[in-house]
Amino acid sequence: MKAPKFAYAKPATLPAALALLDQHGEEAKVLAGGQSLVATLNMRLSSPAILIDITGIAALSGISTANGKVRIGALTRHCDIERSAEIAKSVPLLAQAVGQIAHAAIRNAGTLGGSIAFADPAAEWPACMLAVDAEFIIAGKSGERRVQARDFFKGLYTTALQPKEILVAIEIPLLGAGYRSAFLELARRHGDYAIAGVAAIAKLDAGKFRDVRLAYLGVGATPILAKGAMAAIEGNAYSAEVVAAAQQALGRELDPIGDLYSAPPTKTHLARVLTGRALAAIAA
């Protein structure tokens, strides 16, 4: 299981990387943490002419807070998020989710940007990005553009990212007081891609859910923001009836793709169960 032959370049700056990308077009693949890409190369499921290793671009890493937003460089590794006091304080959902991502050795190499750009619908970060209402900063030859997470995930492993673009950073608006979050997933084995999972955020205002966001992983071609379920909860206090209404709405809006071990009805069922548990956790 040896990777096919490819060339390698490690540009030191973003413009240099973009120039290489422009030069090689779809023949090139961007290498960040490589935790998905190198596996597919070893399995010969992918055969790029050249890998453009962007990990030498210092400006793409780091976590900072300014102007009501937390900015996370695309090359920030899962472990950096795991170890960040700033994240734990400002975007606790990410801290709740990160431990579910694979294993320590993977988290030490894999990056936030890589996970988002790869857009595995069963991965943790894409769903979290929907829930935290992130904005992605994307660089191309003609400059930077911004795409809302909610507009980014287009289909199975397809995103708004164009072939000659690089995801540079993720910006997450800070939430005010009263917000709570929960991240729950069900995986057969710890660290596996989940059968289903939910990233949930809501403000608890005098016991009532406000600004509810429920983003699901593993239950479709993309991470899914369940607007129907969110609407069923919005403005209500936690109760069995509200949970049931949300679960019912969820069933109407989810159209999961089965995986090897779980058919669509199982995924929908599990997403409903997790919804109830997430709401209970937030309300608790």
């Binding site: 069900l186 057969r188 059968i195 071990y261 779980s262 058919a263 199982t266 069922h269």
Partner: peptide
């Protein structure tokens, strides 16, 4: 015994 098989046995899916 996958979760799905258990759920099927329970009549939940």
């Amino acid at each position: 015994f996958t979760p799905e098989r258990v759920l099927k046995a329970l009549g939940k899916v």
